[in-house]
């Protein structure tokens, strides 16, 4: 198995198997280019200027976990039922990160084009926003309400049925 060196934006090198690195389609295409240029003998160094060391480490954790024996490159399609369940548990624990980390992770997954990780991150964020009021979401994610007064009033009037808290309604 060939190893490759992934270099983060802050210059830290991470040595991984080409199999794990190839979970990222961006890296995979870069590897193909490098292989064509430099041949199969020299070590392959892939610079990733948009991903910092910490985020890259976290992404690589995912890639290594999902390329361990019994897992194929595309993720979970042909894995055994036990392995699949183990991976699900691992994924759940993996997603126990702060909102800030989640944000950086989703950006990195998008840039590196790791479909499984991107999906996992999106699910994580979706779980965080589900069932929350707009104010709560804004507060939680530090979003700014940039609607104009009239626009906001219009949205409020149109979506009143959805914006009214069910618990409050039940109390009334």
């Amino acid at each position: 198995m060939r190893t490759v060196i992934l270099r983060s934006s802050d210059g830290a090198d991470h040595i991984v198997s080409s199999e794990a690195a190839s979970l990222s389609r961006t890296v995979q295409s870069l590897l193909e280019e490098l292989e064509a240029k430099e041949g199969e003998e020299s070590p392959l160094i892939v610079p990733l200027p948009n991903v910092c060391d910490c985020t890259l480490r976290k992404v690589l954790q995912y890639c290594i976990q999902h390329t361990e024996p019994g897992t194929n490159l595309t993720g979970r399609i042909h894995v055994s039922e036990t392995r699949r369940r183990d991976l699900e548990v691992w994924d759940r624990n993996y997603m126990l990160v702060s909102t800030d980390e989640l944000y950086h992770l989703v950006m990195a997954a998008h840039y590196l084009n790791v479909p499984g990780l991107l999906e996992l991150c999106c699910e994580g964020i979706a779980n965080l926003i589900r069932g929350k009021s707009p104010q709560h979401v804004r507060q939680h994610f530090g979003l700014v309400n940039n609607f104009e007064k009239a626009e906001e009033e219009d949205i409020r009037r149109t979506n009143l049925w959805a914006l009214v808290d069910e618990k409050e309604l039940a109390k009334k």
Partner: peptide
Amino acid sequence: LSGTKVQDSASL
């Protein structure tokens, strides 16, 4: 995590 280079301040 310190984040990606592109985006220093994390916000959805």
